[in-house]
């Protein structure tokens, strides 16, 4: 099949950036979206041009590296999907596709389609953990976790930290990302002792990083490749309220 790509090119964080248009012929509809970029890059290298930089690693939807806004939607047209798991058969022959990086001031562009998401790591460092040193653990089955809680915690824990939620949000809010971690840990008995400290510290760091406020548009849930529900944001808000009322300090 044939496709035309309008790709965001930006040399570095200082460069203003612009779209460039590329034409690709003879694509296999079973190739993945990133494999199409491999083909494009081989073509550019042959022509002596600079290949397009993009993030990727596992190419099976789990590492959270890949991050392209495709025709205005983070990770493209399918629901519950990552860029690396998108295949060309979902596009029409001859179609023009626009590809841009995640856009959010907390995720500055490094080059082309690559952005800096280290803000997420700092949010986790601020409180997204259970404080237990190696060797301090008790016997695993001495902690009972009702299956429903474990399942719900897992529903939140599947977050791959890709940042599509931020990219999809008009305010570039990181609420779904933070909510997923807060939910995961506060649903488990192990996370109980620190639950209020955790939520306060994570939210404080989130604000410091310059992510926007949540105005409940639910765009994040729609873009989340793992289908993480906005009900976790409701839980985050409850936890945060309780934390501000209940926690001394």
């Amino acid at each position: 099949m044939r496709l035309t790509l309008k790709v965001w090119r930006q040399k570095n964080s200082q460069d203003k950036g612009r779209f460039e248009v590329y034409h690709l012929n003879d694509l296999d509809e079973h190739a993945s979206f990133l494999e199409m970029f491999d083909v494009l890059n081989e073509q550019l290298i042959r022509e002596g041009k600079d290949p397009v930089a993009f993030d990727h690693d596992c190419r099976e939807g789990i590492c959270g590296m890949c991050s392209m806004v495709i025709n205005g939607r983070p990770h493209g047209p399918l629901t519950h999907n990552t860029t690396c798991q998108l295949h060309l058969r979902h596009f029409r022959d001859g179609e023009t596709i626009t590809v841009e990086p995640w856009r959010a001031s907390a995720f500055p562009v490094i080059k082309d389609l690559v952005v800096d998401r280290s803000a997420f790591d700092r949010i986790i460092a601020a409180g997204g953990f259970i404080s237990v040193n190696t060797g301090q653990a008790v016997e695993a089955n001495s902690i009972l976790v009702p299956k429903e809680n474990a399942d719900q915690a897992m529903n939140a824990a599947v977050c791959i930290g890709c940042g599509a939620c931020v990219a999809a949000c008009k305010n570039a809010s990181a609420m779904l990302f933070v909510a997923a971690k807060v939910s995961h840990l506060s649903l488990l008995p192990q996370g109980e002792p620190e639950r209020y400290r955790r939520v306060k510290n994570m939210v404080a760091q989130m604000d410091k990083e310059g992510f926007g406020a949540c105005t409940n548009t639910n765009a994040c849930e729609a873009a989340c490749p793992k289908g993480i529900s906005v009900t976790h944001i409701a839980r985050l808000n409850r936890e945060y309220l309780k934390a501000t009322f209940l926690q001394e300090e």
């Binding site: 008790v138 474990a150 995961h184």
Partner: peptide
Amino acid sequence: TNIIDQCVAQGVPFAREYGGLL
């Protein structure tokens, strides 16, 4: 066996039975 203990303490949501056991 220590690994499982450690991971559970960290909050790894392993699959569970209805009784709450792993």
